[in-house]
Nucleic acid binder design. Sequence first.
DNA 1: AATCGAATCTATATCGATTTAGTAAAACAG
DNA 2: CTGTTTTACTAAATCGATATAGATTCGATT
Lengths: 375, 375
Amino acid sequence: MSRKKAGSTGLRSAQQSETPLGLKQLADYLGFAPATVSLVLNGSAVADTISTETKKLIRDAAKKFNYRPNFFARCLRTKRSFTIGVMVSEVSEGYNATVLSGIEDHLLQEGYFYFVASHRFKQDLIDEYPQLFLHRSVDGLIVVNTPWHLDLPVPVVTVSSHHTVKGVTSIVLDHYRAAEVALRHLVDLGHRKIAFIKGQAFVPDTDVRWNSILGAAAQMELSIDEKLVLQIADNSPTPQPGYVLTQKLLASGEKFTALFAFNDISAMGAIRALHEAGLRVPEDISVVGFDDIESAAYQSPGLTTVHQPLRKMGRMAAETVLRCIMRPTEKSDASPKITVEAELIVRGTTAVARQHAARRKNVPSRSAESRIASD
Amino acid sequence: MSRKKAGSTGLRSAQQSETPLGLKQLADYLGFAPATVSLVLNGSAVADTISTETKKLIRDAAKKFNYRPNFFARCLRTKRSFTIGVMVSEVSEGYNATVLSGIEDHLLQEGYFYFVASHRFKQDLIDEYPQLFLHRSVDGLIVVNTPWHLDLPVPVVTVSSHHTVKGVTSIVLDHYRAAEVALRHLVDLGHRKIAFIKGQAFVPDTDVRWNSILGAAAQMELSIDEKLVLQIADNSPTPQPGYVLTQKLLASGEKFTALFAFNDISAMGAIRALHEAGLRVPEDISVVGFDDIESAAYQSPGLTTVHQPLRKMGRMAAETVLRCIMRPTEKSDASPKITVEAELIVRGTTAVARQHAARRKNVPSRSAESRIASD
DNA sequence: AATCGAATCTATATCGATTTAGTAAAACAG
DNA sequence: CTGTTTTACTAAATCGATATAGATTCGATT
């Protein structure tokens, strides 16, 4: 327990005292006017004519006293807050949490902070939060996985909101390719009778993804049996709806050899229902999830799923919104849609279809088993 | 696809125009001085003598024009930002994400926003972020799962940081009871040779939890074999370290019938390693996790684990920090430590110890299987 | 000697609220 | 009719910066 004495801990300025001194004090100390100090410290163009000596003096003193301009005073003048509002459906849920992590990476690195608000798909909150953000003078907004129609006076970037709104850039997955690669995998394994769990009607990805699945299936001449198509209705970010739906499907007696879930969460619910019905995954039924949230890799066996580069999508959203803030004029220039690619992560929940499997045990390779996509 | 026309979407005030009018304009419109308007709108004591009629006039106009005082101007004067800084190790990780969700619930409800910063246990960030928060004039700080020694000029509440710092309130789990209930469960199932995975040295919970385990074990006369005790070293919020550690343990040839992991994440890694070694969970080895993060319930079978009321802990942290902000004087009054209780959630990864099990199949009941604690 | 133009810095208005000290008029008391 | 309260507001300072327009000095030019 040999803690160094306070002051020697690398914080050079012992002036780390209670007084967060202001521009005025600093100027007085230096014998210059506040304006001069401000000009120099902000590297303003007007400061070009100020003598090098003076500049050095000012900068040194600023460093010595660890001067930081009052944040609010500065915001009040410059009308910039270096803060971004982020609206998600629920912070604690894997999809949003990962996107958020990507957003944070970039924003903090660039000196921005962000507010988070979770609406849990309540319409009144979806309407209210953007106003609250604006009232806090955020410089921009990132909207994740949320229906969006507004045209606000600040840059807005959406992630997985499939609406074309004037002036807002949206970051979306190439859902068609995603559907294609997942279905191709199942079809290659011999699956023909595939069950589907669709997302909730109010989740923006739902329609786009389903249409992509329909398109891809048509392309590869795979027929989709309507009786094997289920849709989640609950507004619950848990596996419960997928669990219940799968139980119903099993009770209906319809035959299927594979299940393609709307997301990993519902896939996990489905797997539990299958297990409880005495079916093995993947030996009896193959299951494919979507998103590749962190816990998908944590399952035993690991969940085969369509990886969305969530962290990257978050980072791109942050990059884009900051870019728009920097040059607010050329709004039209910004391509209104940025598409990222999905990737199929084959882990342990898919195998050759039962009727085709020559009774051989399908042991997924260890490396595939524990594979974790690194974005 | 019958989208309503814009404008009819429930935004009542057509005054939702570009001009976020200021106090001055409102005062001019009313024919009063800005001071009067401000006084009335803030319900200041001085406004007591202002005629009821005038008050009504002012309030009505404010409502009509949807007047909102400029946030920064107000902060500049009042020195309050209605913003809390939250420091976590990693937003996207289940433990933090759930605590965060609880924090958010309460803060937004009370009209506060919050900044999040993830330090990923990098010491320089742990040092830097609090300063950045202070520079943004946060009204308080919540520090989650992070070593903490600072005494800042604003209220600080920690969650699971086991250090007693002057003036900071900490919210902690009753680790002793947690250890006791988990060990009791295993012992009751006949387990005597129990392996342990300890957390990383830099995680605050690690020592406290381990000491609690030692204490509880001594109490119930359970001996702990040092050769069965492993410790995570990696700074990786994934199951990987638990996986690798368990592989090593298995390779060592030491016999054990149960494993008590530091957290759910490492338990999942351990389970994978056990599976890959051809061992069944829980028939051959029982596994108990810790935390009860969301994905613990999503496993098949569900993970038996010690539930921490994470959401509640987050909410309490938020409540506490706001309470301290409200009455900044009586710092001493605030009890410096708030303890919450753990709860064992028995799901599907624990069963009667092998040598004691009379070859009977241990099928956990369905309800236990899918049980999800609601905090 | 008067003028000009750099080179250096400063005075002051401004951002948009809050808040203290004070004023004008009306009501009341003696 | 004068003096004191009360009632009902308002003027102006303040928070702590930024930014524009201008002031001062000084050597050089014509």
